[in-house]
Simulated scan of single mutants.
Amino acid sequence: MTTLTQLDKLTNQSFNNKMRRRGFAIEKTFYFWRKRGPFFDVLWGEIIGSGSSLRIFVTVMCPWIDDPVTGEFVEFPFRTCSIGGTLSGRFPENMRSGVNFDVATEDEVTQSLENILKLVDENAVPWFNEIVSLETYQFYLEKSANRPDAKDRAKVKKGIAIGLQRESYQ
């Protein structure tokens, strides 16, 4: 059985450094983010199955949606997915049925972290890099499980448009 505290000790050995090399900052235990223009790419983990499994969530957030004046997050770190879902080899085609990574033993954690890095490189990072406009964000927003109503879609559109005006990609 693994806890986030135990997982944190194991990830600090090399996994966190590998995520930093990919441009991600570490906010807290198994919570990684990077900023691209007005967007934040986020990965976070959740221990499930009484400590035997780890599920990884993947999302892109834009703080300009919640605060079109300053572009600051109302809450950070957050644990919601407006777009995105759970990491798997089928992500982003299938965002709702991700993989649960085995983490009951230290050997399982080591193997799972290797698999997670592979999926981050092959699936999550290319998807993150695809989200560069209001159109791509809205495309995935419409595919999400929590499809917003017309008022929320208008808020998203306005916030991202402002964010793209004020923060360019480098």
Rank of each mutant, 00 (worst) to 15 (best):
D67W: 07
N17E: 13
S82D: 13
N17F: 09
Q111D: 10
V109F: 01
A124L: 07
F128C: 08
R55H: 05
V74A: 09
F39N: 08
T70C: 10
E27T: 01
T105R: 04
G89M: 02
F139K: 15
G37F: 01
F24Y: 13
V132M: 14
L117D: 02
S112H: 00
R21A: 12
V99A: 03
S88W: 01
F139M: 12
L134A: 14
V74H: 08
G37S: 07
P126R: 11
N129A: 04
A150V: 14
R36I: 03
N100C: 07
C62K: 07
F91Y: 06
I65T: 07
N16L: 09
R55T: 13
D149K: 12
V156D: 15
R21I: 04
S88Y: 01
S53F: 08
L117N: 08
Y31T: 06
E130D: 12
E72R: 12
I48A: 10
E106P: 05
V103K: 08
K28M: 04
I56G: 02
T105G: 05
F24C: 03
Q138H: 15
E114C: 02
T110V: 08
E75Q: 14
V69F: 03
K143Q: 15
T136M: 14
T70D: 13
E93S: 05
V125S: 06
F32W: 15
I48K: 10
P38Y: 09
K157I: 01
K151I: 15
N129Q: 14
S52R: 15
F15Y: 14
P63T: 00
V125Q: 02
G98L: 00
I83D: 09
V103R: 06
P77Y: 04
Q111T: 11
N17H: 14
R20Q: 14
T70I: 06
P38W: 08
F39Y: 06
V125A: 05
V109Q: 05
D107S: 10
V99I: 09
N94E: 04
T29W: 05
E106I: 11
N17A: 15
K35W: 00
F76N: 09
R55L: 10
R147T: 14
F30A: 04
I83F: 06
T110H: 12
K118S: 09
K18Y: 02
P38M: 06
R36Q: 07
N129K: 12
F128D: 07
T80I: 13
R34H: 05
G51P: 13
F30W: 06
S14I: 07
R96N: 07
R147A: 11
K143N: 14
N16F: 08
N115I: 05
E114Y: 02
E135C: 13
T136V: 10
R36G: 00
F139P: 03
G89S: 11
S82I: 05
T59V: 02
F39M: 05
E108W: 00
S144N: 13
E114L: 00
D66K: 06
G71F: 04
K157C: 02
E46L: 05
P92K: 00
G71Q: 08
R90S: 09
L113N: 02
W33N: 05
D121Y: 06
F78L: 10
